[in-house]
């Protein structure tokens, strides 16, 4: 079980932001990824999440080379990777309550309905979301509360790999600690591989098993 970026170059509309990056996240390990702003960290995450097509190179998921992105990848493959985005505000549909937000990925793959409520309740409990918060819409909760709901959503499919793109940057220290502990707990239980993208060296030092620097990742190939 591993998530591998193999010689990935990517960009937007012909402007290349990432050149020849290679990175491996094995099951159960936590890899930190750092790099200056604009070095392509988020782009690498989007490529690994199968949301953005690389210009060259490819993603290898659990030994299988992935062709295509987004809807061209079967849902059962996409859901093996969980993603936690930097901005909870932007990554939550403003029309859904937090409960619907967490349940949505299960509904989307037609998970048996009677099992959904239990799974949502379990994750909400781990993320410290009360029933009152679950009934609210994003505009009525704080960034920290919303990111905890997004974390619950990212874990709802029991992904084998979790990508955190600066996911704790905007949060206060206690929420940061809660998010990290929920992820570590999940990792211990399921052997999930975790990629933590951050430009906070202290956070990566504490949390990650090893830290890669995007500038060396792109040169070492």
């Amino acid at each position: 079980m591993s998530l591998v970026a193999d010689g990935v170059s990517a960009g937007y509309r012909g402007r290349r932001v990432l050149t020849d990056a290679s990175l491996t996240v094995e099951a159960g390990e936590t890899v930190g990824l750092r790099g200056p702003s604009g070095s392509g960290k988020s782009t690498l995450v989007r490529v690994l999440a199968l949301l953005h097509a690389p210009e060259t190179g490819h993603v290898i998921l659990d030994g299988e080379r992935i062709t295509g992105t987004r809807h061209r990848v079967p849902a059962s493959v996409r859901t093996r990777i969980g993603v936690l985005f930097q901005s909870p505000r932007a990554s939550a549909d403003p029309r859904l309550t937090l409960e619907q937000l967490i349940a949505e990925p299960l509904l989307a793959v037609r998970h048996p309905r009677d099992l959904i409520a239990g799974r949502v309740a379990e994750l909400a409990d781990r993320a410290g979301l009360t029933a009152d918060l679950l009934a609210r819409r994003p505009h009525a909760v704080s960034d920290g509360q919303l990111q905890r709901a997004c974390l619950a959503r990212a874990l709802v499919h029991r992904p084998r790999h979790l990508l955190c793109d600066e996911a704790t940057t905007m949060l206060d220290a206690s929420t940061q600690a809660l998010v990290a502990s929920v992820i570590i707990g999940e990792q211990r239980a399921t052997g999930m591989g975790v990629l933590v993208v951050s430009h906070d060296p202290a956070l990566l030092e504490r949390w990650a098993d090893r830290v890669e620097d995007l500038t060396t990742v792109t040169r070492s190939h």
Partner: peptide, 12 residues
């Protein structure tokens, strides 16, 4: 981004 999140979550 919430559309990306939905796609990553398996939505058709």
């Amino acid at each position: 981004t919430f559309i990306d999140a939905a796609v990553a979550g398996g939505a058709s």
